[in-house]
Each structure stands twice: as C-alpha cells, then as structure tokens.
Design a protein around this nucleic acid. Structure first.
Lengths: 166, 166
DNA sequence: TATTGTTATACTCTATAACTATA
DNA sequence: TATAGTTATAGAGTATAACAATA
C-alpha cells in the first residue's frame, strides 16, 4: 500500500513560541494528510478510483434530483474544466449520466446511474469504516467538541475568504 | 487570486445520521482545503513558490544542522524522488545546499543557505499572518482545545497507520 | 544484501484561458 | 452581454520502479 514515510510531524516546524493559529493549521494539515493518504491509497487499490471522483459521486448521492455542472463545481470547490473531465470519466464508466435540462438548453443535470449508486454505496461503507477506525481515539464527547470547533473555524474562515475575493 | 468557487461544504455529503467520525473527517478536509487554497495561492503569487517547497524549507529551518534526504522524505511524508526534485530546484536557486556527510559517503546533509534563511523568514512571517486571520474566529480557549483534540486524533491515527503498514 | 539517493515515468489534480452555444 | 459547459494546456503533486554507489 505504500503509506510511505508516515511517522511524522510536519508540525515539528511549529515551535512552542509560535502563535496558536499556526500550530493549529499545521496540525490540521498533518491530520488531514494522514487520513487522506490512507483513504486515497485504499480507494485506488480497492476501488480503482480517486478522492475527487468519490467526492463527486458523494455529492450526487446527496442530490438524487441531479446537479448541474456549475453546481458541482461550486460544491467541490474546483473549476469547471475539472468537473467536465471527471464527469466524462464517470460517464464513460456508466456511473453517472448527463440528462438534458429542459429549462435551459445549455445545461444538463448530472445524476448517478443505478450502477453508480450501487458502486458508491459500496465504497462509502468501506470509506466510513476506515475513517471511524482512524478517529476512534477520541471519545464521543471529544468528537462532538471537535466537530463543533471545526464548524466554527470553518464558518469564520469562509467569511474571511469571501471578503478577500478580489 | 482566483479562489475559485469557495462557497461550499464538501460536508454536505455527511448526513445527520452518519457517524461522527465521517463528519469530522469531511469537516477536517474542508477546513484544510480552504486554508490550503489561500496559502498555496499566496505563496505562488507573492513568493513564486509552493507549499511543498515551503514545508521543506520550514523543516530545514527547524534543523539548522541540516537533514539527510531520507530524513526529509520521512518528515514531509513524501517519497524520495520528490524530495530530490524539490531540493534540486531550491539548490539551483541558491536557497539550500547539499553538504557532504563525512560519516556516510552515500549521503549528504541539506541545509538552508543564508539567502534561504532570509527568504524563509520573510515568507514564514507572512504565512503566519494569513493563518492567524483565517483562524481568528476561535477564542484563545477554543484554539487551545482544538489543538489538544487534534493532537489526540493525530496520535491515535498515527498508531493505527503504523499498525496497518503491510 | 540493505540502504542512500537519483533518474525516469506516468497519472491525477488543478487553474487559466480561449472557445461554443445558448440565454 | 452574460452564463453553461468544453477544450487545451501547463504545472503541481505524487507514486512506482529501476538504477548506481556505498555500507
């Protein structure tokens, strides 16, 4: 599986006298990358897919009525060209379909096919098991608290980012 | 700066009945990606550099005695070939240097040059400001708590990952 | 034999920008 | 003019594997 050299702390660069914010950011990055590496690696070896593809299918699963390309682009936080490329792949594999949007002939709705739904459900279950295991070091109470803090951090960062849009 | 379509929640895929662990993971990923996007974008436009290059220099700054290639590889959690590529670039730009390691003629120590130190210090200060701003939505108390929870999560995940090495 | 580091390669992800076709 | 989506391109980022030199 080649989980490479995973013994680390990128965080070692955050010295004790540094601002908390910087230490949080580095720890956040380390945690995310550790989990991401496991998830990516397993998605590839066990399901021949990637995290962006999984994310896209996950969004579609959340929206059974389908999503337009630009909605996917916004939800996944990537630019349009990338969404086109991923949807092209998934469509070729029969996992998603492009349906004409009657109200706007420029657009269509992307939906999971039956096969895509089955495939996603299967992956999602495994995916969740991996993550549950990786995060099982925290008690339920701690998990709730972490969830809450991340939500606050997220909302605030989102505001800042919106303001800074040039 | 093209912060693309940043209005989102990848997290919308985590339904309320899902396990907490999955929701934490998705929120973690969203938070990290939001910050990462800003940091990457600014490192590129303002300093003509990238996050992995910054990370590598940050590690060297933490280790003034220098680091071997395989130590860098471990600390940065990437494979050797990638470290070689980044060190090659930075060396060409005069920011790091390869010093012979007397005790092992296969190896050398990589160190920041004076110019590299100056360059890194400059970037690190700006980098810290960006992050402080993005995370300023949390009180000091909350930041401490978040730091603690992430530490626990990290340690536990690290153990799991070490065990799962094939 | 194992380890250090390099080289070569291939694939995914991503942003940018120019393009088309509708609106 | 503006918007939906596509195409083309270039550069990151990363993993893999074969290799040379040394241990």
């Amino acid at each position: 599986m080649a989980l490479a050299a995973i013994r680390t702390d990128r965080e070692t660069i955050a010295r004790s006298e540094d601002h908390r914010a910087l230490r949080i950011w580095l720890r956040l990055l380390t945690c995310t990358q550790m989990i991401e590496r496991v998830v990516r690696s397993r998605l590839r070896s066990r399901y021949r897919t990637t995290l962006p593809r999984f994310d896209l299918m996950a969004q579609l699963e959340r929206h059974p009525e389908g999503l337009k390309m630009n909605e996917l682009s916004r939800l996944l936080m990537v630019t349009g060209g990338n969404v086109t490329a991923i949807v092209d792949q998934l469509e070729k594999e029969g996992l998603v379909e492009r349906l004409d949007e009657p109200s706007d002939r420029r657009a269509f709705r992307i939906r999971l096919t039956k096969s895509g739904e089955r495939s996603f459900t299967d992956m999602a279950r495994a995916h969740e098991e991996w993550v549950v295991e990786l995060l099982s070091g925290l008690s339920r109470r701690e998990q709730d608290e972490l969830l809450r803090l991340l939500a606050r951090a997220k909302e605030h960062a989102l505001e800042r980012i919106s303001e800074m849009r040039p």
